[in-house]
Structure formats: structure tokens, C-alpha cells
Design a binder for these strands. Structure first.
Lengths: 217, 217
DNA sequence: CAGCATCCGCTTTGATACTG
DNA sequence: CAGTATCAAAGCGGATGCTG
């Protein structure tokens, strides 16, 4: 019966997008779901609204648009989506040629995997931006939401957004950044692969994968 | 990427069926998946085999048939399916008119919810068989796998199968049995709803829903 | 530009019939 | 028992057009 509600093509991906980005516009959703037909997105949103998983609301005064937001019932799907992600992680590691990977999609897996290796220290922030080919595509701008990671006294947060400033700013493509953050390649190797580092690269040993002591250096 | 593998219609339901029943025949699968087209089942099994989620093997000598069994990779989907079930539980409680519910589908949710209220006592068994309308349908026989519950020193097991003998045998339709086992109706009410009890009905207070002290009496 | 609705060609699905 | 073959209907992806 759960699959009757969320088992249609795209439905869980739409929910994931809303989990990552919070309330967002129709156009944001479309840019985060490459390949979805616009009529299908409209139809799925209608279904999700009817099932009580999302609500539409007018944005606060300055902005003139309607936002789509998950209800508590919709948010409750996070556990399902995290389990699916955990199961699928080996597929991501294998890597798939024709498969594109948007940067902000890494938010949920990073929340699962990253921990603060220096719980005694205060706040620091790492920002990640999409690299060249992420912007090359015409709609790359809208889709390139970016990631903001903070660590503060043992608590790591990972969110999507357009990071303004940070102690460390990484710029590169999602796949490379991922292998770097989960500790499978070094900073040097990431540089070779086209990742640009601005700021305190030492922070990469502050925010590390769960149960991993490698300093990534 | 996980949804690319298991996101197609029927795929997760096939995996669930194999989780519940263990190795089983093509025909068993079909009877446990009312409404699936036979060509679709064949196609999905091919895909699942290719992805390494299932294997086919010849049954041991006496029986001449091929069995389908989950690999470890396929079994790993149990956590995904359990989370989907947990999320969908409210839908089951609401109840849906035209929606049929096979008895053995209750195996996974019951594993989650039932505990032994008398961990100090030894083994007892409860068998559940499909009621009249479960057998009325032409293919009801094959689909009516039944459930066998055991409690032994605090450990509860729930499995599908054709129970031979038990300390208590319940016969009735899945929906009523479910409401009885999760403690929402009494034995008396279940009797009125057509459930037949043979044996020690007191065992229903031995196997109870998690964190629930109601004796169901 | 945000937020759809419509149309078109193609693929997938569901139902049924048939076969070794 | 374990599928394959066939066909109509539904769903999907892509392009385009429309409205505030």
C-alpha cells in the first residue's frame, strides 16, 4: 500500500529533492530532477498534495511565487529514502558512465557519513560549489545548489544552498568531491581531478567519514 | 540509482514475497502477487537475476522444479521494505475497500511488532490459516500460505508456511486476524467477525504487540 | 519567467491465449 | 509448472504553447 502511494516513477525522487532543499519552487524541483517531463512533475505534485505529503504555500511578500513543502507525513519518508540510499551506495561507488550526479544530491548521504573528528573545537564551515561542467549546461545554474557543511562541538550539519562564505570552499564536480569527502582519494589527487581549494584545506581532516581516522592528506 | 534497480513496478513486491517465503517457485510467486501479468513476472525475474539480487536453483531430487531465492544483496533490501512498511502502516489501519490482503503478507510486519510477554516460559506455537473467502477464490489454495508464530524464552519467530499442528490454530481472514494480533479487537469480537479458534486461546496474551500490556481478553 | 496544459510518438503495462 | 506471444490501454519523455 505504501508503494501505491509513493511507488510511481519520480515520486520518491521528488520527495528526496524536497528533503534536501526544503520548501522550493516548481522550477527548482524541475532543475533538480533532470529528465522529468514537466507535465509529469505537475501531475505528481498534484498526487502528493492529495495524499497529504506536500502542501503549497505562497512565499513571503518580497518573493512572488508558490513554494512546495513536505508535510510531516512526507518528511517521514526520510527513513525510507535513507535506507534506499544505503542499499544503493555500492552502485554509486561502482560509478556509472552516462549517469549524471548533481552536487546537492550528496546532502543526504553526507549527513549519514560525516562526523566531527574534533568535538572539542568550535564552529567551522566548508562550502562546496559545482565545477565548470556543472555550470556549462544551460540549466546548470539553477541546479547547482551547492552544499554547506558545518562542524561545531561534535555536531555536523549538511545542507543545500548557495554558500556565501566559508573557511574552506571546494569547487569541482560532484563525483570527485564525493570520493574526496568519503576519504577514497587525497587532496592532491582531487586537485589533479580538477577540484579547486580555497581556504583551510586542513578542515578536511576535521569533517571525516564515520569510523575513519585517515587525515585525507 | 537504487530506484533504477528496484524502482520498477512490482520489483520490490517480488523481493518482499521472497523475503517472506524464502526460496519458492514461479507459480508461488504469482499466487502471492495478485494482479501481476505473467510476462511481467518473468521479465522482472530476469532483471533481478541479472542484477544479482536473486538466483535460480534446481530443487532437491524429490521435487522437479526450479526455485527462486534471494542473494545476500537481495536480502539486504529487507531494511528498505521494512521502512516502507512502517511508513505505510497507517494506510493499512485506515483500511481500503477494494484492496485484498493475503495472510502471509503479515509476516514482515508481525516480526516487527510481536514480542514474548513471558520470556521465562518455554516454546509455544500459534498457527494461522486463511479463512473461507481465502479458499473460495480458485487460486486461493496456493496463495493461502498461512503463518506460523513461535515464542520461546523471549524470542518470537514469524514465518510463512503450511502449519501442521500448533498449540493454537486461528482461521480467518487476514484483515481481522491482523486487528486481533495488534490488539485492536478482542477475541470475542474476532469470533463475531468470523475467526475460528482451536486450542489454547490464552496464548494470545503470550505473544503481544511491542510495548502493549493489554491481554486481548 | 513561473507554472502549468496539450499533443505526439514511443515504451511499459495488464489481460489473455497459447506452448513445451 | 514455467513460461512465451499477442494486443489494447495506459504511462512516459520530449516538444511546444498558453497564461498571469
Amino acid at each position: 500500500m505504501a508503494l501505491d502511494v509513493v511507488g510511481d516513477r519520480w515520486t520518491l525522487l521528488i520527495v528526496r529533492e524536497l528533503l534536501i532543499r526544503g520548501a522550493c519552487r516548481y522550477t527548482d524541483l524541475r532543475s533538480g530532477l533532470p529528465g522529468i517531463a514537466t507535465n509529469l512533475l505537475a501531475e505528481r505534485l498534484r498526487e502528493l498534495e492529495q495524499e497529504g505529503l506536500i502542501v503549497r504555500e505562497e512565499a513571503p511578500p518580497p518573493i512572488a511565487t508558490t513554494l512546495v513543502r513536505l508535510t510531516a507525513r512526507g518528511q517521514a519518508l526520510e527513513r525510507v529514502i535513507l535506507e534506499l540510499g544505503r542499499w544503493g551506495a555500492p552502485l554509486l561507488a561502482e560509478g556509472t558512465p552516462g549517469h549524471q550526479l548533481l552536487l546537492h544530491w550528496l546532502v543526504l548521504p553526507l549527513r549519514l557519513h560525516l562526523v566531527d573528528s574534533r568535538p572539542d573545537q568550535g564552529a567551522c564551515t566548508i562550502a562546496i560549489r559545482a565545477g565548470a561542467e556543472g555550470i556549462a549546461g544551460g540549466d546548470g545554474i539553477a541546479g547547482a545548489a551547492g552544499i554547506l557543511i558545518t562542524a561545531n562541538r561534535g555536531v555536523v550539519t549538511v545542507d543545500s544552498g548557495r554558500p556565501e562564505q566559508a573557511d574552506l570552499v571546494l569547487t569541482g564536480d560532484a563525483a570527485t568531491i564525493l570520493t574526496l569527502l568519503v576519504g577514497r582519494i587525497s587532496v592532491a589527487a582531487a586537485r589533479v581531478a580538477g577540484v579547486d581549494f580555497k581556504g583551510r584545506t586542513d578542515l578536511l581532516s576535521r569533517v571525516v567519514p564515520r569510523s575513519d581516522r585517515s587525515s585525507r592528506q
